[in-house]
Nucleic acid binder design. Structure first.
Length: 137
DNA sequence: ATTCTCACA
DNA sequence: TGTGAGGA
């Protein structure tokens, strides 16, 4: 499985996302309503987030803290994807994004490892163990 | 037990 | 944004 696929695979439920991002479920659902994130859904209509979703939510949180409103965030995030044919992109800005993502990944691994251990300890789980285990081979 | 949608003292 | 009701 490619890295790109891995990062976009829907894996975690709300509870994990709230602890990973420090955002409330209410906020996350609200951001989704405004088209800032599009988590997948399980059969039971539960939201399933991917690593990409987590990164996106962390960026959103960052912008919110900086006082950017949802409309503004929506633009910035979409521009980020549509900025392929634009032109010059400050090298410094690129590096900053890369570093931020690297840090995000590191934190995610730690938190996820913790989640897995706790889930396993409390012995009770279906989706997490099977799906997430592949990230820690 | 968890998450979902909807609505508002 | 928080929170509680009523379902799944």
């Amino acid at each position: 499985m490619s890295d790109l696929n891995r990062r976009s695979t829907p894996l975690f439920p709300m509870s994990i996302i709230t602890s990973l991002t420090d955002l409330t479920a209410r906020q996350i659902r609200y951001y989704e309503e405004n088209g800032l994130v599009h988590p997948a859904r399980s059969k039971g209509n539960r939201r399933l987030f991917s690593f990409n979703d987590v990164d996106r939510l962390l960026e959103i949180k960052d912008l919110i803290d900086k006082g950017v409103n949802l409309a503004g965030i929506k633009e910035m995030l979409s521009n980020k994807t549509t900025k392929t044919e634009t032109e010059e992109v400050p090298k410094e800005e690129k590096l900053e994004v890369e570093v931020k993502q690297a840090l995000s990944d590191r934190e995610l691994r730690n938190l996820l490892r913790k989640e897995l251990l706790e889930a396993g300890r409390l012995n009770k789980n279906s989706l997490r163990q099977g799906e997430l285990s592949r990230f820690f081979h």
